[in-house]
Simulated assay, not measured.
Amino acid sequence: MLADRIRRMGAPHWLALYGLVLACWVLLALMAVPPDLREVARVFGGAFWEAFCTTTPDAAGFARLWVMWALMSGAMMAPTALPAFATYDDLGHSTETNLPGLVGGYLAVWLGFAAVAAGLQMALFAAGWVSAFGDSRSGLLSGGLLVLAGAYQFSALREACLAKCRMPVTFFMAHWNDGAWRNGVRLGAVCLGCCWALMLLGFVGGVMSLAFMGLATLVMTLEKLRAGVWITRPLGIALIVAGLGVALWT
């Protein structure tokens, strides 16, 4: 059965999905700011980085940030949904399915999140709370985001969203007649409910930091598995403790 699933996941629509995720990671790697350049910018100030890439408070600046957050969302969130995508594709043996439509609806939700995150980054940059890289300049902001993400790990809303992600068959069958696109949007909304707070930790770990993105993707993927129930609460405690430490001692 596992061998059959592996063969099915080599179909053209799966290869296209893998290619999309890989392309997002490659583009992010090309756009990522090296740690040494970040350090130079801290020493010489924001004007140093403005010579390379300016976060401008206009439509062009917003568009650049939206593209960056859209790539981050595609690279980080699509892998976390692979088990749900595979479950949906398996249902195609007994009924008609449309995986591209499902994935399209799912990514549409995260493109919307990318727009909100880009706007938030512009506002934080204008207020002087984040650098031109999108990294937090405020211990209170960093600590607040960490505590928020940690507290959200214990919320009933997040638990309800995670339950749906961990039981994709039940989720899809409950809304099957809505079609692939609507199911994709619904799945994207559920994943957004799980992961928005962790995604915003990019302002703490470093927007466009490959290390942060890789670690966050791994954590979010593991949490959506059934065994992830053992990760959620310890992670929440760790984030709250880290957030309080950052807020009090920086």
Rank of each mutant, 00 (worst) to 15 (best):
L2F: 15
L2K: 13
R8M: 00
A11Y: 09
W14D: 05
L22A: 15
A23P: 06
V33S: 02
L37C: 08
E39I: 12
V40K: 14
F44P: 06
G46I: 08
F48P: 05
F52I: 05
F52E: 04
D58Q: 01
L65G: 05
L65E: 13
W66S: 02
V67L: 06
M68P: 03
S73E: 07
G74I: 06
M76H: 06
T80G: 07
P83R: 00
A86T: 08
T87K: 14
T87I: 14
Y88P: 00
S94M: 07
T97M: 04
G101Y: 09
V103A: 05
G104Q: 12
G105S: 00
W110S: 09
G112H: 10
V116L: 11
L120F: 00
M122A: 03
L124P: 11
F125I: 01
A126C: 09
A127W: 10
G128F: 01
L141D: 00
V147K: 04
L148C: 09
A149M: 03
A149C: 06
A149D: 02
A151P: 07
L157T: 13
A160F: 05
A160E: 00
K164I: 14
C165K: 12
P168K: 06
F172A: 08
M173K: 04
A174C: 05
N177F: 12
G179I: 01
W181L: 15
R186A: 04
G188N: 04
A189K: 10
G193W: 04
F203R: 01
G214I: 10
G214Y: 04
L215S: 08
A216H: 09
M220V: 10
G228T: 15
L235T: 11
L235S: 08
L239S: 08
L239H: 10
A242T: 05
V246I: 07
A247P: 04
W249M: 06
